[in-house]
């Protein structure tokens, strides 16, 4: 059986702190979400996940970029780097890095949903001809650059968003928070994506290396993060390590 091998204590160094579990959903309006899936080398497979999670075959990275018009934290942009995984038999993405464009969004995402969010400069262009995403650090160095072209209309239910697992210091201890996202989709396009830059080390590990793009999509939608209902121990399989909050 394949299990993650990352040390939870090492992962915890960048983990967010969630003082209390939110009781109300967090609603995001006027959202554009770009998602790209890519295969990673299998040498990265187990090492990017804590022992409570199982990798997929092949190892895969999921890049999500959000442009949000309205939220409790105002307008913001967000880039999330996740590793495809299984919690028990459920399809999930384990967050390795998150970059938000504003302090308010980074703080909200860390404190309420457990995203390990830092701030950075995010470029997000969505046109009729394609999508461009970029992340630059405070020194102006490019950490991520993705171009996606040839948008092709798809049906509203053609994109699958798997739930997110964020490792965070919670009132129950160091836990994987199961963050779901409910969506009301308005428009879906599939695109061909190309990666210009992906600085894996800047997102936590040089082994985070998307070597083969699988597909990309861009979706306009309304989104909601419902209150977190379950957390999992990072060092125990979900069958025994899942707790209700």
């Amino acid at each position: 059986m394949l299990f993650g091998t990352a040390d939870p204590a090492a992962l915890a160094q960048t983990a967010a702190t969630v003082p209390e579990f939110a009781g109300e959903p967090i609603r995001l309006s006027d959202v554009t979400c770009f998602q790209m899936t890519a295969e990673m080398k299998n040498s990265a497979r187990e090492s990017q996940l804590p022992p409570g999670l199982h990798p997929t075959i092949p190892a895969a990275l999921i890049l999500q970029a959000f442009e949000v018009g309205e939220s409790p934290w105002g307008a913001f942009r967000l880039v999330v780097i996740r590793v495809s995984c299984r919690s028990g038999v459920r399809a999930r993405g384990f967050t390795r890095a998150a970059i938000a464009s504003t302090e308010a969004a980074a703080e909200g995402l860390r404190g309420q949903l457990g995203f390990p969010a830092n701030t950075g400069m995010i470029g997000f262009r969505h046109g009729y001809d394609g999508v461009s995403i970029s992340v630059t650090d405070s020194d102006g160095a490019c950490l991520l650059a993705v171009e996606a072209i040839d948008p092709e209309p798809m049906a509203l239910d053609d994109v699958q968003y798997t739930g997110t697992l964020n490792l965070a210091h919670t009132p129950l201890g160091l836990r994987l928070m199961q963050v779901e996202m409910n969506t009301t989709v308005q428009r879906v396009e599939r695109l061909n994506a190309r990666i210009g830059t992906f600085a894996g080390a800047a997102f936590g590990d040089a082994l985070l290396d998307p070597v083969r793009v699988i597909a990309a999509s861009v979706v306009t939608m309304e989104a909601e993060f419902p209150p977190v209902r379950f957390v999992c121990r990072p060092d125990e399989p979900a069958f025994t390590g899942t707790e209700s909050v």
Binding site: T37, T56, S84, R86, M154, D158, A215
Partner: peptide
């Protein structure tokens, strides 16, 4: 068996398409 089966990367997760509308056996 079910857990090992779930480790496969389902097409619907990876690739937006009309042709795969479910997450397979998972």
């Amino acid at each position: 068996f079910n857990v090992a089966n779930a480790h496969l990367y389902w097409t619907r997760e990876a690739y937006p398409t009309r042709a795969y509308q479910t997450l397979g056996n998972a």
